[in-house]
Every structure is written in structure tokens, then in C-alpha cells.
């Protein structure tokens, strides 16, 4: 556990030593502000639903930028060799890196809290769906980050990691919007695999164990694949 925290802590701090964290945070906050306030007064409702809707979409695009370098850059520069030959297991490296980026993501989420707060000053805000929405965002973000880490474990090129991660996360987000094109059996299966399907019900204030399990499973699966990819170098 100590190793995991040491690796995660280093990763977390190194985001702030470079520009990536600042750029991603700025872009997310600016686009969110733009889309959210643009329509807020048209609806005339004191609700944070729109914020969650936009944020879930923006994050699907933004989070892969945080994960693209996690392993790819370490492989390119060779630092992975020094890291792995310290007394750690591959699993600790993967989980540590994941916690590091999850920490940064948590900060990003905390930075958006002023939105519901300012909404609550304008009207009577129901805080229940806000908290469940944040939980949903956190879980969906975890899944996107884990997928990004997985993509980063496959290559030593950050750009490739970025595009693979973007493709995967956008694909899972957009799945339930393509359903009209499909026969109904396939449609309900695909709907169930969609991030947004699970997230939207949480944003409405419904915490369903199945939604939690879905995000947990995707996250664990992606981390396991990343672990295998990192470990496979030993036998190549």
C-alpha cells in the first residue's frame, strides 16, 4: 500500500510540475462555464442537471489527455525500467498510477462545486441529485481514466495512447445514442454498455447498485488489462 501511495503521490505532484494539469483544468472549466451559463437562464430552473450533462461529455474528451502519458511516456524515456526495478510489483505500479490521476480528477471535480453553489443562491436547489451526480461523474471518470491507462500501457507514443483512449471513451459514451439504428435486442445490450445510460440515472438522483457495479467492472477490467500489458514485457 505504501508503494502504491508513493507512486500515486509522485504521479499526482508531477502533473503540477508540468503544464498538462493546468491546461486540462482550464479547458474543462472554460468550456463548462460557456455551455452551462449559455442555456441556464433559458431554462429558468435552479437545477444542476445541465452541468452534469455537459461535464460528463467534456470529461470524456478531456480525461484521456491526463492518462496518455501515464505509461507511454515512462516507456519512451525509459523511466519505467527504473520504476519497475525498484522493489514493487507491476500491480502496485498500475494501481499507484491510477490513484495518482484519480487524485487530480478529484481536484477537478471539487473545482466545479462552485457551480451548484451559485445555482443554489439563485433558487431552491435540490442537493440530493447533485451528490449522486458527483458520485456518478467520479465513477464514470474512473472508468475513462482506467481505459486511458490501459491505452497508455500498449504503446510508448503518447499521441497513440491519446487517440486510442479518446476512441474508447467516446465510443462508450455515445453507444446509447446510436440505438435507433439497431435491432431491439442488440440495442438494449448496447444501451446497457453505455457510460451515459448509467451516468444519467445517477444524475437524476438514482443510485442503483447495477450502475455502480458497471463502472467498477469497466475500471477493474481496464486496470487488469494494463497490468497484463506491463507484465508481458518480461516475457517478450
Amino acid at each position: 500500500m505504501r508503494n502504491i501511495l508513493t507512486i500515486g503521490g509522485r504521479q499526482f505532484r508531477s502533473y503540477f510540475n508540468g503544464p498538462v494539469a493546468y491546461i486540462v483544468i482550464c479547458i474543462v472549466m472554460l468550456t463548462l462555464g460557456f455551455f452551462f451559463w449559455k442555456t441556464f437562464f433559458l431554462f429558468g430552473r435552479a437545477s444542476a442537471r445541465e452541468m452534469f450533462r455537459w461535464l460528463s461529455l467534456i470529461l470524456v474528451f478531456a480525461l484521456p489527455a491526463l492518462t496518455m502519458g501515464l505509461l507511454a511516456e515512462e516507456k519512451r524515456t525509459g523511466t519505467i525500467e527504473l520504476l519497475i526495478t525498484m522493489p514493487v510489483t507491476e500491480a502496485q505500479v498500475i494501481v499507484g498510477k491510477f490513484f495518482g490521476v484519480l487524485g487530480l480528477y478529484s481536484i477537478l471535480l471539487v473545482l466545479t462545486v462552485p457551480y451548484p453553489i451559485s445555482v443554489s443562491t439563485l433558487g431552491d436547489l435540490d442537493w440530493g441529485p447533485v451528490w449522486s451526480g458527483y458520485l456518478g461523474l467520479f465513477l464514470q471518470g474512473s472508468a475513462v481514466l482506467a481505459l486511458g491507462l490501459m491505452a497508455s500501457s500498449w504503446t510508448s507514443n503518447q499521441l497513440i495512447a491519446l487517440f486510442v483512449a479518446l476512441t474508447l471513451s467516446v465510443f462508450f459514451w455515445v453507444l446509447d445514442k446510436l440505438l435507433a439504428l439497431l435491432p431491439s435486442g442488440a440495442a438494449s445490450a448496447l444501451e446497457w454498455m453505455s457510460f451515459d445510460y448509467h451516468f444519467q440515472s445517477m444524475a437524476r438522483g438514482v443510485i442503483d447498485l447495477r450502475d455502480l457495479l458497471f463502472f467498477f467492472s469497466v475500471t477493474l477490467f481496464a486496470l487488469a488489462v494494463a497490468f497484463r500489458a506491463l507484465e508481458s514485457r518480461r516475457w517478450s
Partner: peptide, 15 residues
């Protein structure tokens, strides 16, 4: 038991 310095000294340059 090992202290290891890989080829080309790969370090985290931003630290």
C-alpha cells in the same frame, strides 16, 4: 538487494 542505473540514466526530468 540491487541499486540499478539503467542505460542513459532515465530520470523524471520534471522533478
Amino acid at each position: 538487494a540491487i541499486g540499478y542505473l539503467p542505460e542513459n540514466t532515465p530520470l523524471y526530468t520534471e522533478m
